[in-house]
Computed example of a mutant assay.
Amino acid sequence: MVRNPLTSEQIEAGRRLGRLLREARAGRDLGGVAHAAGMSPETLRKIETGRLPTPAFGTIVCLSEVLDLPIQDLAAAWRNDLRLEAAS
């Protein structure tokens, strides 16, 4: 199965999501948060920097729980700016 390339909008949405997660993690150790969420520190680093712009839903749910960040906020980071761009 061949995966279609991501659009520029999807890539930017992944960057917004990564920024929100990085801000929510604040002073917490990246490795500690990653392990608590069941992933490697490198995976979390890739998500936070936008190098992994479309993480699996289960990954986002785990990060939401570990960071005590409502999943709705993560969805808004992905979705809301895209709607604003489409309206422009």
Rank of each mutant, 00 (worst) to 15 (best):
Met1Thr: 11
Met1Pro: 13
Val2Glu: 14
Asn4Met: 08
Asn4Gly: 06
Pro5Thr: 07
Pro5Gln: 12
Pro5Trp: 13
Leu6Glu: 15
Thr7Arg: 10
Thr7Leu: 14
Thr7Gly: 04
Ser8Ile: 11
Glu9Leu: 11
Glu9Cys: 03
Gln10Tyr: 07
Gln10Ile: 10
Ile11Pro: 08
Ile11Phe: 05
Ile11Asp: 10
Ile11Thr: 14
Glu12Val: 15
Glu12Gly: 03
Glu12Ala: 15
Ala13Cys: 08
Gly14Ala: 05
Gly14Ile: 14
Gly14His: 12
Gly14Cys: 11
Arg15Trp: 11
Arg16Ala: 13
Gly18Asn: 07
Gly18Pro: 09
Leu20Glu: 04
Leu20Gln: 14
Leu20Ile: 00
Leu21Asn: 08
Arg22Ile: 07
Arg22Asn: 10
Arg22Leu: 09
Glu23Cys: 05
Glu23Ser: 12
Glu23Lys: 11
Glu23Gln: 14
Arg25Ile: 12
Arg25Asn: 07
Arg25Phe: 02
Gly27Ile: 13
Gly27Glu: 12
Gly27Tyr: 10
Arg28Lys: 11
Arg28Phe: 08
Asp29Ser: 15
Gly31Met: 07
Gly32Val: 06
Gly32Ile: 08
Ala34Trp: 08
Ala34Asn: 09
Ala34Asp: 14
Ala34Gln: 06
Ala34Pro: 10
Ala34Glu: 06
His35Gln: 08
His35Trp: 13
Ala36Asn: 09
Ala37Gln: 05
Ala37Asn: 03
Ala37Leu: 09
Gly38Glu: 01
Gly38Ala: 14
Ser40His: 14
Ser40Gly: 14
Pro41Leu: 08
Pro41Val: 12
Pro41Asp: 09
Pro41Tyr: 13
Glu42Lys: 03
Glu42Gln: 15
Leu44His: 07
Leu44Lys: 01
Leu44Ala: 13
Arg45His: 07
Arg45Val: 01
Lys46Arg: 10
Lys46Leu: 15
Lys46Asp: 12
Glu48Cys: 13
Glu48Ala: 07
Thr49Pro: 04
Thr49Gln: 12
Gly50Arg: 11
Gly50Leu: 09
Arg51Leu: 05
Arg51Asp: 15
Leu52Cys: 06
Pro53Trp: 04
Thr54Arg: 15
Thr54Lys: 10
Pro55Asn: 15
Pro55Ile: 08
Pro55Met: 12
Phe57Thr: 12
Gly58Pro: 02
Gly58Ser: 09
Thr59His: 05
Thr59Asp: 03
Thr59Gly: 11
Ile60Val: 15
Ile60Thr: 04
Val61Ala: 03
Val61Gly: 00
Val61Asn: 01
Cys62Thr: 01
Cys62Ile: 00
Ser64Cys: 02
Ser64Arg: 00
Ser64Asp: 02
Glu65Cys: 03
Glu65His: 01
Val66His: 06
Val66Cys: 03
Leu67Lys: 02
Leu67Cys: 02
Asp68Asn: 09
Leu69Gln: 01
Leu69Arg: 09
Pro70Leu: 02
Pro70Gly: 03
Pro70Asn: 00
Ile71Pro: 00
Ile71Ala: 02
Ile71His: 07
Gln72Met: 04
Asp73Gln: 10
Leu74Thr: 02
Leu74Ile: 10
Ala75Met: 11
Ala77Phe: 01
Trp78Gly: 00
Trp78Val: 14
Arg79Asp: 02
Asn80His: 00
Asp81Lys: 01
Leu82Gly: 01
Leu82Asn: 04
Arg83Lys: 12
Leu84Gln: 07
Glu85Met: 06
Glu85Gln: 15
Ala86Thr: 14
Ala86Lys: 14
Ala87Phe: 04
Ala87Lys: 03
Ser88Met: 05
